[in-house]
């Protein structure tokens, strides 16, 4: 009798041990998969760093390319990239901010117009970048006669970045406490006064993060720019000039210029450093502002 109970306990113990073993195996599998998923891309960055860093110098950043980019620097690309980014963001910020304000303050998320605008933004953010390139080419370069230019490239890029900026900004605005809205309503403030004095200042930090994230996305983009901003490696003197962005330069050097790979790697390092800095700034800002609140 007693021995019977004992053996039952023993069996239970064995089951428990078995279960424990199973769960340990699962945990191990999950840890190793997780490590694999980050280590492979990190190794990729490492490889590019090793390839690119030796070419990197102040000289590289401040001179024009020679021999189709095989030697020389990337000054024109840096300047073109900056121009394109500026045009893109100058377009995106006012329109995006207005749209985000409209979505968060003037309509509810489940109203017809809110749903239509929301769905079309979601769809827009899923459109392949090459299609934005085609669109930008057909409309800005050809239809509006802007040609292959920084303006065409910046505007096409703006169309692509717009939904991202609107959605992140809208989230920032919706995070504003409803108590403020109710107080403003009871005091009969106008929407404009509420937006200007209460809403935007209280959401400013998160809007800044939205801005930085959008900058990162714009900086990373290539396919849109190939046949809108063009290929030219001169320093642009006007926004109607063609200009080659950093990412396009990497593509061109590695695919079309035999022997261009070392400089492509160095340019990739520059681009990657820019992206990392942008990421860190966004991260740091969001952390600091969370602490303040």
């Amino acid at each position: 009798m007693v021995s019977n109970i004992k053996s039952k306990y023993a069996a239970n113990e064995l089951n428990l041990n078995k279960a424990k073993f199973k769960h340990n195996i699962i945990a191990l599998a999950i840890w190793s998969t997780a490590l694999l998923t980050v280590s492979l891309p990190l190794m990729m960055l490492w490889t590019i760093g090793v390839e690119g860093f030796p070419q990197l110098s102040l000289q590289f950043l401040l001179t024009e390319p020679t021999h189709a980019g095989r030697s020389g620097g990337i000054l024109p690309m840096l300047i073109s990239t900056l121009w394109i980014l500026c045009i893109c963001l100058v377009t995106v910020v006012p329109i995006g901010l207005g749209c985000a304000l409209y979505l968060s303050e003037c309509v509810t998320a489940d109203s017809t117009i809110g749903r239509i605008v929301g769905l079309s933004l979601d769809v827009l953010s899923g459109v392949p970048s090459i299609v934005f390139g085609l669109f930008g080419y057909a409309v800005f370069a050809i239809q509006l006669g802007l040609g292959f230019s920084i303006l065409s490239g910046g505007l096409s890029l703006a169309c692509m970045v717009l939904p991202l900026f609107i959605r992140t900004t809208e989230q920032a605005l919706r995070a504003c406490p409803t108590a403020y809205r109710r107080a403003a309503e009871a005091l009969d403030l106008s929407l404009f006064a509420f937006v200007a004095r209460i809403l935007l200042p209280s959401a400013a930090s998160n809007i800044a993060i939205a801005f930085i994230i959008s900058t990162g996305r714009a900086l990373a983009e290539t396919a849109v720019l190939i046949f809108t901003a063009g290929y030219v490696t001169r320093i642009p003197s006007h926004w109607s000039d063609s200009g080659r962005a950093l990412s396009v330069h990497i593509y061109d050097l590695s695919m079309n210029v035999p022997g261009g790979q070392p400089n492509a790697a160095a340019t990739a390092v520059v681009l990657m450093l820019l992206i990392i800095v942008i990421n860190l700034v966004a991260h740091r800002l969001s952390k600091r502002w969370q602490l303040l609140e």
Binding site: P177, A179, Y180, R182, A183, A184, A186, L187, D188, L189, S190, A193, R197, I198, P201, S202
Partner: peptide, 24 residues
């Protein structure tokens, strides 16, 4: 006028909380 359950001053200075609606 209306006063709510949760105190809800605006994230502005004390005097601006009063001045701002007046200006409006």
């Amino acid at each position: 006028g209306m006063v709510f359950q949760q105190p809800n001053p605006f994230p502005l200075s004390i005097e601006e909380n009063i001045r701002f609606p007046l200006k409006e």
